[in-house]
């Protein structure tokens, strides 16, 4: 079936079966491979994207239900104000170890900061609870989110 998807501000026309998860469409059809396939069964968060600004798991989002919603992936998040601050904080805190989960982590972090500009430790833990990191980079993720919340400065408690 033919679908028209709004991905990162661009309209993509794709022809896929109606039972195709959005993650497959993004990666295999449109070629945006920054969004990762982790577990495929809504457990890990590696496939996190934004649907109208909200963090969702694209592995269990059907292409039909995406409809005309604005889809944003890791490829474009750096062009948003919060996204660029978060990515810079990620680099400065050297959050990444193996990196596989990190595009999902960043998408969840940006969704958090867009909703809550100055999150507490509890807010961060809750907002990031849907994203698993097997390398255990959680302390650096928290530090980077706090740095980004301060606008990327090095002052204050880095966690």
């Amino acid at each position: 079936m033919a679908y028209s998807l709004n991905v990162n501000g661009r309209i993509h026309s794709v022809d896929v079966d109606a039972d195709t998860p959005l993650l497959w469409v993004l990666r295999d059809v449109i070629g945006l491979t920054g969004t990762k396939f982790g577990c495929g069964v809504a457990q890990c968060g590696a496939c996190t994207i934004h649907l109208d600004g909200h963090a969702v798991r694209s592995c269990v989002t059907t292409i039909e239900s995406a409809g005309s919603s604005a889809i944003m992936t890791i490829e474009a998040i750096g062009s948003t104000p919060k996204g660029s601050v978060v990515q810079r904080a990620w680099l400065e805190e050297e959050v990444v170890q193996c990196g596989y989960c990190q595009s999902g982590q960043i998408m969840s972090a940006v969704a958090l900061l867009n909703a809550n500009a100055m999150p507490s430790d509890g807010d961060i833990d809750d907002a990031m609870s849907g994203n698993i990191c097997r390398c255990g980079t959680y302390p650096r993720i928290r530090a980077a989110i706090k740095k980004a919340a301060r606008g990327g400065s090095n002052t204050g408690n880095g966690g």
Binding site: R57, S129, G130
Partner: peptide, 9 residues
């Protein structure tokens, strides 16, 4: 309930 991803869907 669950995590933000779950609550958003």
């Amino acid at each position: 309930i669950g995590d933000p991803h779950v609550r958003n869907r």
